[in-house]
Simulated scan of single mutants.
Amino acid sequence: MKQIPEIKLVPKPETEEAKAAVGYQWNEVAGTRHKLGGKPDSAFGVEYPKCEECSQTMTFYAQIDSIGDDYDLADCCVIHVFVCLDCFTTVSMINQCPA
């Protein structure tokens, strides 16, 4: 399993509607944890899935945070995306991150 270097992603809303959708009234951290690579952030640990095609442990590829109050994922959770770099299959899951 390879580890991709961590690359922080910063949202850049380009319309007024998108700008209004980003952020939380009561949480300054949620909505800022988007990234590629590194290790998944999790309040309870993350078990790396096995590829359904080749049974190898998958590589953590990305973490997509909740967007804001109107598009919240299960109380400020993030989506973790894993990829098999041999078979190019992916798995995603929603996980709780530390606040």
Rank of each mutant, 00 (worst) to 15 (best):
G68W: 08
T57N: 12
S55E: 15
G31M: 03
G37I: 03
E52T: 12
E47T: 15
T57Q: 15
D70I: 09
P40S: 05
E53K: 15
M58H: 14
K50Q: 15
K35E: 00
M58T: 12
A62F: 01
S42H: 03
T57C: 03
D41H: 06
G45I: 09
G31E: 03
Y48L: 12
G38H: 02
S55R: 14
D69Y: 09
S66A: 11
S42I: 02
K39Y: 03
P40W: 04
I64V: 13
S55D: 15
H34Q: 04
D41Y: 04
T59P: 09
A30M: 02
Y61H: 07
T32V: 02
K35I: 00
C54N: 14
K39N: 05
G38A: 05
K35N: 00
D41G: 02
K50C: 07
G45P: 08
I64N: 06
G45V: 06
Y61E: 12
M58W: 14
C54M: 09
E53Q: 14
I67Y: 06
C51P: 10
P40D: 05
P49V: 12
Q63F: 03
H34C: 02
K50D: 13
K50L: 15
D65I: 04
T59E: 14
G31H: 04
R33C: 07
D65F: 06
D65V: 06
G68V: 12
G68T: 13
S55L: 13
T59N: 11
T57H: 06
D70F: 13
T32C: 05
V46Y: 13
P49F: 10
S42W: 02
Y61S: 07
A43T: 01
D41I: 02
R33T: 11
F44K: 11
Y61W: 12
E53M: 12
A43D: 07
Q56C: 13
Y48R: 13
E53Y: 11
K50S: 14
G37E: 02
T57K: 15
Q56I: 12
S66R: 04
G45F: 06
Q56D: 15
P40L: 06
